[in-house]
Amino acid sequence: MHNFKKVGGIVLFIALCVVISGMFNFMLVPYSYIRVDVHNIQEKKYDDLYIGTSHGKAGINPLEVDKITGRKSTNLCLGGEYLEDSYFLIKEAVRHHKPKRIIYEADPGYWVTKPSQNTDYNMIYREFPPSLVKVEYYIAKNLSADFRNTIFPWYMCRNQYTAIPSIIKTKLSQEYKNYGTKVFKAENQSYEEEGFVHINRMKGVPKSKDNLILWDEAKVYQGNLEYFKKLVQYCKKNDIELIAITTPIPQETLEQYAEHYDDANKYFSKLMNQYNITYYNFNYMEEKEIDRSSDAFSDYDGHMYGDAAQNFSRILGKYLNRK
């Protein structure tokens, strides 16, 4: 009887913690367009999937590419998406519908850094519905990480406390229930169809160099290499074509840090060649139609403005048609 009371007390305490944590989760975790991206791969059938980083998100407009390729594609790139995230995104997509081709946008900066525990850390994982893929993703990403990521899923969003009223309002709206995207429309950017983020030109906003992470082969994050190999094997096993690209960056940045970018290009070319993967590094392609001036980019790191991305997407389409 004594033990029963004790166990009952503990269960009650845990239940209380779960309820409080659930409340925080609702209040602090904002509605993000990853929810829409993940919903898309569950509901729609795509021929091509783009995975990669914010460069890909802002640089590839699937609708424009599709006009050239005649296929149907969606953009699953994301700022803070490392290869381990991309790998599980693909697995989740395949669970619903197997694509024919995957286009991996390789950003050298993401290969020489580790995923850091910031707001992006669990953004993709969080939106996955319960499944074995999610369990596998959890083991890969969260089991060795800080226990607060698991016990308090809102932990990385705790600094959003000032946005609590708007988060609650959004989550209670029809827009949220219907996976709407109007809520993501802001002055500087908007989320458009099929996962493309259109960055708007803003007058008087200085261009940042803060996000620039330079290539250094000695710092290559082994986790990326490991998941790249896994991705290659997974695509091979499932008969999915894998192509790698690197989106253009401003010519000014490329020239200023030529040595770093040249080394990165050599590294990726060698790596892709080793796995027999077609690799297009658009910084080194003699493609006159690409606008490489800093006018085409919102920063020196290489995030394209929406109009430049439309143009680049059409060029990308032509290259993808070559295969």
């Binding site: 089991l143 060795s144 226990f147 607060r148």
Partner: peptide
């Protein structure tokens, strides 16, 4: 296995 990891708590 860090003391603050979920793996360690499990």
């Amino acid at each position: 296995m860090s003391l603050i990891s979920m793996k360690f708590l499990l």
